[in-house]
Computed example of a mutant assay.
Amino acid sequence: MSDETDTGRYLRLTVDLVVEVLDVNALQAAALAEIRDPQTELDEDERREQIELVNSDDTGAAALQWLIEPDHVLALVDHVEEVEPREAMLGVEPSDGILEDEGEDEHDHEHDHDHPHDGPGHLH
């Protein structure tokens, strides 16, 4: 494999997922337990800052972002031997509860219809 930058070799995978928060207090409590865990690599100032962020966000987005394991996201392509993940970024933000149709025509491919990804085992 060459180390040269070749944009033809890179693909950006975009996934939109809408979740319904059933219990924001329980979600925040789970995130706070993760933040307070001594195994979490935060100094005390960072820990206090993250606790405040989770407590002040009544949507649960900050809490959910703490609970999503990067390995779970990378598992989307773990089984594909022909690719290697290079970089990942995850954002969690409030939603109106439905996926937006922006650009659907641009991204509508036959493959999307042949293999629906809404069944069990596809998203964790």
Results as ranks from 00 to 15, higher is better:
Ile68Gln: 06
Thr59Trp: 02
Asp3Lys: 14
Ala63Thr: 07
Asp96Leu: 14
Asp96Gln: 13
Arg12Ser: 15
Ala26Gln: 11
Arg9Leu: 15
Ser56Thr: 12
Val15Met: 07
Arg47Met: 08
Val73Gln: 02
Pro38Leu: 05
Leu22Gly: 15
Glu81Tyr: 08
Leu123Ala: 08
Glu20Met: 13
Val21Leu: 05
Glu84Gly: 01
Leu67Cys: 09
Ala30Gln: 11
Asp105Val: 01
Gln39Leu: 08
Glu81Arg: 14
Asp3Gln: 10
Gln39Lys: 07
Ala61Lys: 02
Asp43Ser: 12
Pro120Asp: 11
Arg36Gln: 13
Met1Lys: 14
Ala62Tyr: 08
Leu32Asp: 01
Ile68Leu: 03
Glu4Ile: 10
Val80Asp: 07
Val83Tyr: 13
Asp3Met: 09
Asp101Gln: 05
Val77Asp: 01
Asp101Met: 01
Leu76Asn: 02
Gly103Ala: 07
Glu20Thr: 15
Glu84Gln: 12
Asp23Pro: 02
Glu20Asn: 10
Pro85Arg: 01
Asp101Lys: 03
Leu123His: 15
Pro116Cys: 08
Gly97Asp: 00
Thr40Gly: 04
Thr40Tyr: 06
Arg48Lys: 09
His107Leu: 11
Val24Trp: 04
Leu53Arg: 14
Leu27Arg: 08
Pro120Gln: 06
Glu106Thr: 10
Leu32Phe: 03
His113Ala: 09
His72Ile: 11
Asp114Ala: 15
Ala30Tyr: 04
Leu99Phe: 01
Gln39Gly: 05
Ala26Phe: 01
His111Tyr: 12
